[in-house]
Design a protein around this nucleic acid. Sequence first.
DNA 1: GTGGGTAGTCAAAAAAAATTGACCTATTGT
DNA 2: ACAATAGGTCAATTTTTTTTGACTACCCAC
Lengths: 83, 83
Amino acid sequence: MLSGKWKAEIFRLATESPLRFNNLLRQIQGSNKQSLATALKELEEEGLLEKITIKLKPLHIEYNLTEKGKALIPVFQQLEGLA
Amino acid sequence: MLSGKWKAEIFRLATESPLRFNNLLRQIQGSNKQSLATALKELEEEGLLEKITIKLKPLHIEYNLTEKGKALIPVFQQLEGLA
DNA sequence: GTGGGTAGTCAAAAAAAATTGACCTATTGT
DNA sequence: ACAATAGGTCAATTTTTTTTGACTACCCAC
């Protein structure tokens, strides 16, 4: 589910707060629009993130962890506990 | 650690019993010598598998989970519990 | 009406990963 | 002696993934 160069990091950032596209682009150095767009779409397709259009001004888009996404957090906590 | 097309499956098989090269080649359909050789070497470098030369006849080579490799098993069990 | 920010898409190029086929050594079986 | 099995390596090719650069469209401020 988190295969590829960027999905793991995107997922981690999503556990901290909702994601916004251009913000992500600045946070993840070495990446690029296209790669992030592809990764976000795949994370959505896998059901880990959901895309939400915030209709308030300034109108913008957020990506949030779904319940399925949140369910993975304890797994990574366990993994961190090993290192 | 388990990136790429074959490492996850190799890891799973390693949790069941020690691995032998040509045996693995038969078990993992769709794969090939080179890919498995590369994956095994990387799993070794990551410290998840150890390569052991069995000096008894017939002399052969086994790949076993290291302690670090075994430590990952509960993580995957937790993951399975979610699905 | 120009510049900046948001949120992207598209096609092409480059880079990385995976596959193929040839080859190699050593041991065992018939 | 000959073939088969085990456990690989190497170079070339193919496939997949990632990156680059150009381009859209909308909104806001000056």
